[in-house]
Design a binder for these strands. Sequence first.
DNA 1: CTCAGATCATCCGAATCAAGACGAACGTTC
DNA 2: GAACGTTCGTCTTGATTCGGATGATCTGAG
Lengths: 151, 151
Amino acid sequence: MTTAAGPSVDSEITWLLHRAAQRMHVVTSEHAEKHGLSLRDHIVLSALDKWPGLSQVELARAVGLDKTTLMSQLDRLEHQGLVVRRANATDRRARMPEITRAGDRLRARVAEASAAAEAEALSDFTAAEVALLRRMLFELIGDHLDPGSCL
Amino acid sequence: MTTAAGPSVDSEITWLLHRAAQRMHVVTSEHAEKHGLSLRDHIVLSALDKWPGLSQVELARAVGLDKTTLMSQLDRLEHQGLVVRRANATDRRARMPEITRAGDRLRARVAEASAAAEAEALSDFTAAEVALLRRMLFELIGDHLDPGSCL
DNA sequence: CTCAGATCATCCGAATCAAGACGAACGTTC
DNA sequence: GAACGTTCGTCTTGATTCGGATGATCTGAG
């Protein structure tokens, strides 16, 4: 398996994943931004919808963003009225981010649009193949996906 | 398949790809940086090895980087003696980047280390599953991968 | 030959990102 | 209650990224 030149670049799953993510990012962003949302905004809103009650650092770890990056994201989303930071009664340090009704409506619309875009990008594959892809990606991400394992 | 809340975040292939790429990035970077190379450095060196004779813009398109980003990467690599920019006899605008002998030695070492890291990260899957994953990622990236289709 | 348009590498400016520092608040131990 | 280490959110700072503009060069049409 070791040629004189070593493994060539197209054997690098890491890079293929990176390029594929990049490509899908372009495809879905195109749709998300019609609603005035970046893909990352949408990710954050979706995480807030799926895992309510997380603190900002917990949320950052859940979506895989730096805490300072997430803060500026939340600033923007709060400024747009899609998120509120509510005081926590039992811990006065924490300001729990929550998705607003308007934010959830927008999230649902963008989710449908980007799901459609994804489905089209994946239309060359069978349902079984897509299911396997999803399963493998989950496995690769491992225990870093669900914030429950971080608490 | 449309619940009242719409598709949840874990159905988004785009995000799964992003997280998986992020995770593999951490795993392989860990090994690449033992040799003083970032993952992106390694990608660029590998592309130079695989497709010699590309101009800087062609190389940027081949690896999926912005042209200015690639320029600063090449600056760093050239400063480390891993890359040289050689004048092109037939086109005085172009400065063809080439990998040096030292660069190729380092590239081969990092390629082996990161391939081993990838193999370990993928050890839970069968060879057929990995092959399918690779094929699907290639398909997703589409014609943006090989520079031959851009010339 | 000349000129217009395209292409290459580079530079510039705005935006973004992440690591570290900081104050405030928490919980535990004395 | 006081002291210590930890966690939370924020601020600051340095580095990085990307889009657009620039100058030099090539190419093709007239």
